[in-house]
Design a protein around this nucleic acid. Structure first.
Lengths: 217, 217, 217, 217
DNA sequence: TATGAATGAGCGTTCATTCAT
DNA sequence: CATGAATGAACGCTCATTCAT
């Protein structure tokens, strides 16, 4: 279930030749590099093209405008993260709630930490509203996957599954973002990660109803 | 303990006269309005000046450059929020942990929701690294206040107070940010708020050690 | 009765200060010079600004975009011509048809020849549709003035005044344009001018009905 | 007597093979279509090639550069018109002056009206100086043909044949152009056409000298 | 020979900043 | 002090042209 971008933000062409694919990758990587080293304000088409070893014109053969490039980059990034989360959710079906929580937090955390500078660079580049549609799509995807997972919890259930999922995801995503924003040293970050798991588990325990209890009612 | 900005970002003058204060306020308000209605990309000095009913030249008498204006705006905003949190922390000294948690979440939430568009506009305007120092200062301030509050909890204590505070704040701040970012409808937002309190309380209960227990050891 | 431009083509400000008026004139004159010496294809904002001894930015304070500058230039030019024709038409009220024709042709011819290179440069710069509204407005203005004049002819009348006027103007304007386009040497051009008068007069004589005749009917 | 273009504007090859001729036609037609639908400003090589169903590269096999294409298109167009006028002039040899005038005007008018949008599109695309040589060549051709025709008028002659022909052609061409430029509704355009004939005939009658008269002198 | 990806000079335009008034 | 016209570097983007395939 990949995101379908608004038409005005879609890339101009799908790479048919191998060369084109290479070029496209170079452009994406260059964008990231510029974002990291120069910041979003200095993310200019010329600079990206230069870094990619391509001419501006070439860039414009792949993307109708700068926005579209940026959009595509975010799309790529979020798709990757979403896939990982979905995989985890699939893998944990039928497990116990605690395991789910731990896996969820850890997966998301790792996905974000893998290339920490990229994550940070993208966090800093909000700026344009159009990305909102992207974030929404990402959120929906992950919502669905997570809800499905928690619906399959062994020996328990939730009175208001949707809210629980929403709360979990909102706080996990938010906490991670905050940690990046505050630029915490690794040890502190790790502590927060561990405590975040504790927190989410405490929460889930609180809101979950054991099947026994439920049947008794 | 107000934030002290890096010298290159400080306003040119402290408003001595009433007139100056009025102008300054007009400029700040205009900045916010432009930010909300036109977005961060269209936040130009000319536009702000126009909206504020001042000439660009005048604006440059108060701020050495655009960044400084933006910095000052964020400073003002964060100072306000910090003050509210500090006030709450002071008020809740010696209370029970649960009350503290609820008060903390609610205060922060309200502070952010009071002028929701402003909050959102500022969230969307990250962009410049320089704000990081501001966020850090804010975080430190709130950290200290919160730690002090939780250190005074009645009949209980925390094994690792600092991590607990860090985790709480990171997740509260992050969750709120995520809620804004996802543009959740009010009811869902409210649900998340309530569940966030539940979550934090569950967490605090988990990590707190009763004084009795502690003394026994 | 000055032309009112479509709003998107109107200049940004009316010159309030003397300095501004000078700047505006310099820009107009520079535009003409560039048009003459470099041709419409090389009429770039940079080149105009340079020639005018102004920065590009300044140009954009007077005109929202290149088109608007070009539009305003044509407007100025056509207004001038229209005024001259109108003056002639006013002066010739009640005269004999022959005198009117000669005056009309001569006035238009002179208006166009006065700054021949400018005329030619503008003829060569059609290109953009938007000018059509300008040409139409100009045509209407001159139509009205000319019709009023010919309606006042002494001792004669026209069966179909509007068509006569339209034919006269169309052929006069067209002929002049053709002469410029073919870049005829002066003597030939002058011959054509004289013969154009002969032609128009022969035409007018043919289509006019003497008052005597008319009353007899 | 076909036009011989300046060498730098000539197409790269004369179409030897049928396939080439087809391609060439497609390119020309595409150029016209783009001109009509997108205007001269949007007449890009890529767009033309696309519309013609050819690659840019192929286009450059036929024309060394865009100008050459445009030049060739105009050449084609003017050649067609010139041929029609020449045919008429040939057909009317020895006829009466009035018949000649009417035939001349009608032929030219029809040639231009046949594909009115094409005519208009080309009128709007003057722009480049190089076309002047084309127009000149066209004018010379038509001048010669027309002069030959009027030299053969039955029972009359002209004191200054060249000027008469020049005046006639200049005004006919010019009037037609003006009519297109003003975008007159059909009925008005037709009226002007009829009156143009009247006008030219009145003129010719005025400047022609009957053979009898002449011999008397 | 045909292709179309790649090129890059050059365009129109914006906007933070300055400084004569 | 306040003004706002002037500045010009730097941006996003276009498109005629080339050349490896």
């Amino acid at each position: 279930m990949p995101t379908t971008p608004p038409p005005h933000l879609s890339p101009r062409k799908r790479p048919r030749q191998a060369r084109a694919a290479v070029t496209l990758d170079a452009i994406f990587e260059a964008t990231i590099q510029v974002l990291i080293s120069d910041g979003p304000r200095r993310l200019t088409t010329t600079r990206v093209a230069e870094r990619a070893g391509v001419s501006v014109g070439t860039m414009y053969q792949y993307f109708p405008h700068k926005q579209a490039l940026f959009y595509a980059l975010n799309e790529r990034y979020l798709d990757l993260v979403a896939e990982k989360v979905e995989a985890t959710c699939r893998a944990l079906r039928g497990a116990e709630a605690e395991a789910m929580v731990e896996a969820l937090v850890t997966t998301y955390w790792q996905a974000k930490t893998e290339r920490a500078e990229v994550t940070q660079a993208l966090y800093r580049s909000v700026v344009e509203l159009d990305n909102e549609s992207l974030i929404e799509a990402f959120a929906r995807r992950v919502d669905v996957a997570t809800a499905a997972m928690f619906a399959s919890v062994a020996n328990a259930a939730f009175a208001d599954l949707n809210t629980v999922v929403l709360t979990l995801l909102t706080s996990i995503f938010g906490t991670v973002r905050s940690v990046f924003e505050r630029n915490l040293p690794v040890e502190e970050a790790d502590s927060v990660l561990r405590h975040l798991i504790v927190m989410c588990n405490a929460y889930v325990r609180t809101v979950q109803v054991s099947v026994l209890e439920r049947e008794r009612i």
